[in-house]
Structures are given as C-alpha cells and as structure tokens.
Design a protein around this nucleic acid. Structure first.
Length: 656
RNA sequence: GCCGGUGUGGCGCAAUCUGGCAGCGCACCCGACUUGUAAUCGGGAGGUUAGGGGUUCAAUUCCCCUCGCCGGCUCCA
C-alpha cells in the first residue's frame, strides 16, 4: 500500500493511501465521541471520508458550533426514522439544524398530537441504542429519483440541486447528490435520506436529545405551498449541556414580560379593546414615563426639534407616499366620511413629518433638520403574529426623521450611531452587533450610484463603531439601505433594537427640495430612525433583560418603608418619607396589617430596589435599616445618608 | 391569515379522560395579634366554568360555531 502525506492538526504525517479522516484523528480526539466529523481542506466531511495526498485535516469537536450542527442534523435523521417507523406513509420534507436544535418537516396522515412526540422520542432513544452507522453514498439524479419515488417533496429538491437557499443546502446543497443510509449492526438498512451531510459516525454518538414541540410550517417557506407538520427538537454534546439549555429556557420563561407584566401590575391587554392593544397600569406608566423623559432630554441635547402630528389622515397622504399601494393589508381599513373621503389610522409618521418639512421653503442652512416625535401608530397585524408588547397593533414609536444633504449624510449617520449606542447603554444594554441590510436587486427604487454611496457610508460608519457587522444582503427595504442595532440581553438572547434607514424614495415622491448655497434647488436625503423601535417593544425587552428587577431610576417604586410594628409607621411616613419625597424618590410605606416578614416578602416579590426598615432602634437613632434586593442588609443608616445613597443610585442610572 | 393546543372567581391550579352538589392556595374584605429581615391566626365574600348552539333525564365534562390566549409558520413599511 502506497503512502501519502497529509497535515493533521498542523503537523505533516505519512499514512496509508486509504486512511479515513476518523482513523487519522485517532488520538487527536477520536475515536471517542467528542469528535463528530472532520474538516478536510476547510470543508466539513464525515469521519469515514478517505483522505488524499496533501489534505489538511482537523477534528470537528462535538461541542463546537459546527459539531453541534452536525450532531443536530444527524439527530433530525433519527427523528425522521422514528416518525416513519411509527407512522408509516408519512412523507418527508426537510430537516436542518437550527440555532439550539433542529427540526424536520413531515406530511403525516394526521397532525402530531402531544402524546405522539413522547412516542417518537422513545423510539429515537431506541435508534440511538441500535448504534446505526451513517453511510454516505453518491447517487445520480436518475437513481435518486427512482429510490425516492415515494417521497414527492424530496423529488422536488433533487430538481433544485445546487440551490443556494439555506434551508435546502442540507439536502442537496453540494455539487453531487448523496444519500445517507442508516445501517444497523447486522448490516441491514434501517433507513435512508437524501442528504448532503456530513453526519456523525453512528446514532450512538448522540449524547443527549429532546423533542420540544410540533407546529405547522409551509413547505419551502411559502404561504402558497401546503403546510407540513414540523417537529422541533434539540441535541447536545452532553446531558449537562442539555440540562443547561433547558434551565435557560426556564429562566427565559420566568423573564417573560407578559408574565412579569401581570405579576408586577405593569400593563394588560383587556379583551374589550381587542388584540394587540395594551393599557399601561400606573406602575408600567411610571417606567414608560421615565423612558420617555430620558429620551426627550437626550434628543433635545442632540439638536432635535419636537413635532406633533395627528393619528388619522385622509388617504391622500398614503397615496402620495405609496403606502396604500404596498401596505394596505397592514393598515386598519378606512373610515369613510362625508363626501366619500377615506380616513386612515396612521401606520407610520414619516409622511406627516415630510409635510412639516414641506410647509415652507427650506434652505441648506437649516439642514440637517431633525424632527422627533413620540408618534403613535396603528398597524393591522395579522392575528397570529401578535405577541405581548413586542408585536402589537397600536404602538408609540420614538420616531425621528432627519433631512440632510448628501454631503452631510455621512457625518449625520456617524453621530446617529453614536447617539443610538449611548442611549441603549444608558438603559443597561451593553452588548451589541450591527446588521447592514443592502439592496435587493429585484426590489428597489432610486439610482444605483446613490444606493452605493449610502450603503458604503453606512458600512463605513458601522466599521468605525468597532462593533461586529453582520451583512444582510438583499434585506433592505426597497427605498434604501439600513443599519440595525442588535442587542444581547442578560441571558444572551438577541433583540433587534434600533434601526437607521436611508430613504431616497419619499423625498422624491413628495418632491422635497432645499435651496443650496449655489442658489439651485436640490433634493434632500431622508434618514428614518427609531431607537427604542417602539416604546412598547423596548419596554418588553427591558423587562426581560432585567427580569422585572428594574434599576432604581426606572423602578415604579424605588423604596418601600417597612415598619417593625404599627408604631413605626409615623416615623417612616414622617421624617423618612418627607426627606425621600423631597429628594424626588418614589417611596411608599407598607402600613398594611401584615407582619414585617410578610411585608419584606411582598416588597421582594415586587422587586423594589430598596427596603427601608424601621423599628425602635432606628427611630431612636434617626436612622433606617436597608435591605437590598439580593437580601443583604445595612443597619442604622442615618436618614440623610439613606436619601443620598438612593438618590445617587437613581441619578447614576446604575443597577443595584 | 394558516396548523395544532388551550380557555374553570383578580392570579395559579383541581374536578373534564370515564357526564351526576364547581373545590383548593394566593390576592381581597372583617376581626384578633404588634412581631428586627421571604408567608401570624380566625372568619367572610367572590364563579351563568370565554360566548352561542346541539346531544342528554342531567354538560365544566361530549359535539359544532364564534372569540380570546399559547406554540410555530407566513408577514413585520
């Protein structure tokens, strides 16, 4: 047998010509189950792949991003096998890995019931125990069509070979068509699937799995196609990793703003109002007011002018803007008034701000002109998409439109990004990345040169921020490119927060102009931006980020006075309360009939930042005793010091 | 909008599968207790079981329709 030279983990090695990646990686992490695949010359391959002369081979550990994807993709195969075992005749869709798990789409005779998931999962564990080998086999299109004659969805995929859509790439994304056979220990074929791979060596290499839920999903992601039944599952490199993931989900559920909104009495969605229409209760109202006050102050300092516009308008406005053509489905139907004029609830503020711009002639000396408004808009979101405060039908945007010359655009965008990030940081979000959405070649207005300038400017400004920049090709709205700021919250989830969007279209449609230094009329560029997105949505994100334990400056009640007995109520209401209220602290005394311990429990459950306890000792000393949210305490603090400490935490906007 | 699930005092749940007096805890109201860091004791009030229709001697329970909510999909100017 001839020998070849390959590079393994950075070192050259001589090995027999028919060596597999798996054999090569023995002692480099294999053959124990911590290596699930190989990276050969940068490409992910099965451990069973035979290496060639000159190959550079690395191990893909199961606990790496690629390793988990391969594990999960393989687990999806196991699930599909289990489903077809238990429900013969069920057709296969696709089954890719996704963040934190995988799914597989099926066309079953009946939708899966919750009990079915338990049965499928049980069967999956049996398949794992059977230690079936994943074996790759290259097939011709013709052979594949014969083999998969009973799988119409798979046949459709064969026709798409080489397609680029992500969800198809796991099936047929490569240059050649492959089928993976699942082979039992006795050599018989257990199951097979059209698949690009790679896969883990055997089903035994799945250390931990769990099925999560079933749901419907449209075939190939289009509403026009039939709906398939999707089962979501997850798989991890160890039982502990699975446990940690499930614990994270429990934590996320505890932080759910809908649950906290009820527990902390922040807001509700009365049935009488209709879906997606929130009312803010007094405690939610305080938080909201603090958010707004702070935002206003920052905008004032940054040179914005405050405008105000109505909630309804004649349809004419949205005819000019074009929204009635493109988005009327998302608008509440019109109110027809006398004379047959249609009035609409506004789904956006921009055309109204444009009218303010256009109210008189504008000079280049006025630009950039920055108009800000807390503008309440109404959108007829489809019934199935409404979700707490994050997706509503009535919301208030912290909306601004900046009218600028093309020359000033760069400077303005740079300032804007800094402004956005500073504001988000003030609200306690620290961890960001940016997304740059660029032109969709099939759907855009405006000329290429301007698009390129704007896109390049956005990219440049984004790069200057030093933040990670993720491209989103084709993701722009038809009227201009945008940057969106994504923030990671306290438990690592990402939320799209602010958007900064360049618009070439509306200035055109409304024929906006300014007179330049050259005496000629020019068209301004418009920048749309919302920092909170909507107050409602930002409120939800903050609630989940802080798990309801808002920092003092936002907390509805900043300090609660807890008397040891009734006799200490006048002290807390009097000298203590007066000093705190004079300092602007939101302070309440719990003078209910409950015992002191119960009062502490209640304040703790309400996540009040500071509890001020007073008994005989404190009264005698002119002091209070602090109890903080984490249960620590500090006794005998003089009233003035207590006020100063609380005041300081509020002013510095710190978390306690 | 689509698929599936679900709906019982303000909140969390039981009784529903297998039809037979709607129950518990918290919150609320009244009374007693006056206590140093996460639930004091006793009493009371509160429900047309989301709404409508059907089957039945009898419906919270079974069936149908509508609405809301939940999980996804599609959508998100």
């Amino acid at each position: 047998m001839s020998e070849i030279t390959v590079t393994v983990a950075g070192a050259a090695r001589r090995v027999p010509a028919d060596t597999t990646a798996g054999e090569l990686l023995q002692g480099e992490g294999g053959p124990d189950r911590s290596t699930v695949a190989a990276r050969i010359n940068g490409e992910l391959r099965d451990l069973a792949a035979v290496v060639s002369a000159g190959d550079v081979v690395e191990a893909v550990p199961v606990d790496s991003a690629d390793g988990r994807s391969i594990l999960r993709h393989s687990t999806a195969h196991v699930m599909a096998q289990a489903v077809q075992d238990l429900f013969p005749g069920t057709l296969l869709g696709i089954g890719p890995p996704i963040e934190n798990g995988f799914y597989y789409d099926f066309a079953p005779h009946h939708p899966f019931a919750p009990d079915d998931l338990a049965r499928i999962e049980k069967r999956m564990f049996e398949i794992v125990k059977e230690d079936q080998i994943f074996k790759r086999r290259v097939v011709s299109d013709e052979d594949a069509r014969v083999e998969l004659a009973d799988e119409p969805f798979k046949l459709e995929l064969i026709g798409l070979k080489g397609g680029t859509a992500d969800d198809e790439s796991v099936e047929v994304g490569g240059s050649e068509l492959t089928i993976y056979d699942n082979i039992r220990r006795d050599g018989t074929l257990a199951w097979k699937d059209l698949c690009r791979g790679p896969h883990i060596p055997s089903t035994r290499a799945i250390p931990a799995l769990k099925l999560m839920r079933s749901a419907a999903a449209y075939w190939r992601g289009s509403e026009k196609n039939p709906q398939l039944q999707r089962i979501y599952g997850t798989a991890w490199e160890s039982r502990d990793a699975l446990k940690a993931y499930l614990a994270m989900l429990v934590e996320a559920e505890k932080r759910d703003h809908r649950k906290l909104g009820l527990e902390l009495d922040l807001f509700s969605f009365p049935d009488e109002l209709g879906s997606g229409l929130a009312v803010f209760h007094p405690k939610g109202g305080v938080i909201r007011k603090e958010m707004e006050d702070y935002s206003r102050a920052k905008h004032l300092a940054a040179g914005y002018e405050f405008v105000n516009t109505p909630h309804i308008t004649k349809g004419k406005l949205y005819e000019i803007s074009g929204h009635l053509d493109w988005y009327s489905d998302g608008m509440y139907p019109p109110m027809e008034l006398d004379g047959g004029t249609n009035y609409y609830l506004k789904p956006m503020n921009c055309p109204m701000h444009i009218l303010i711009y256009r109210a008189r002639g504008r000079s280049y000396r006025e630009l950039p002109l920055r108009m800000f408004e807390f503008g309440t808009v109404y959108r007829y979101e489809k019934s199935g998409v409404i979700h707490g405060l994050t997706r509503v039908r009535g919301m208030t945007q912290d909306d601004a439109h900046i009218f600028t010359t093309i020359d000033d655009m760069r400077d303005e965008l740079r300032k804007l990004l800094t402004f956005v990030l500073d504001l988000l940081r003030d609200f306690g979000l620290e961890d960001f990345y940016l997304e740059l959405s660029t032109k969709n070649p099939d759907k855009f207005v405006g000329d290429d040169a301007v698009w390129e300038t704007a896109t390049a400017t956005l990219a440049e400004v984004a790069a200057e921020s030093g933040l990670e920049l993720v491209p989103d090709p084709g993701g722009a709205a038809f009227y201009g490119p945008k940057i969106s700021v994504q923030a990671r919250d306290a438990i690592g989830r990402t939320w799209q927060m602010s958007t900064i969007q360049v618009d070439f279209n509306l200035p055109e449609r409304f024929e906006l102009e300014y007179q330049g230094a050259d005496g000629e009329r020019h068209r301004p560029v418009m920048i749309h931006r919302a920092l909170f997105g909507s107050i409602e949505r930002f409120f939800a994100v903050l609630t989940e980020h802080y798990a309801g334990a808002f920092p003092p400056w936002l907390a509805p009640v900043q300090a609660v006075g807890i008397p040891i007995t009734d006799t200490h109520v006048p002290y807390l209401d009097g000298p203590v309360g007066e000093a705190l209220r004079a300092a602007g602290v939101r302070f309440e005394v719990d003078d209910s009939d409950d015992r002191m311990q119960k009062k502490i429990r209640n304040a703790q459950k309400q996540k009040v930042p500071f509890m001020l306890i007073a008994g005989d000792d404190d009264v005698a000393a002119g002091a209070v005793s602090f109890r903080y949210r984490d249960g620590t305490q500090k006794n005998g603090v003089a009233i003035a010091d207590a006020v100063a400490e609380i005041r300081d935490a509020i002013e510095r906007r710190v978390q306690v």
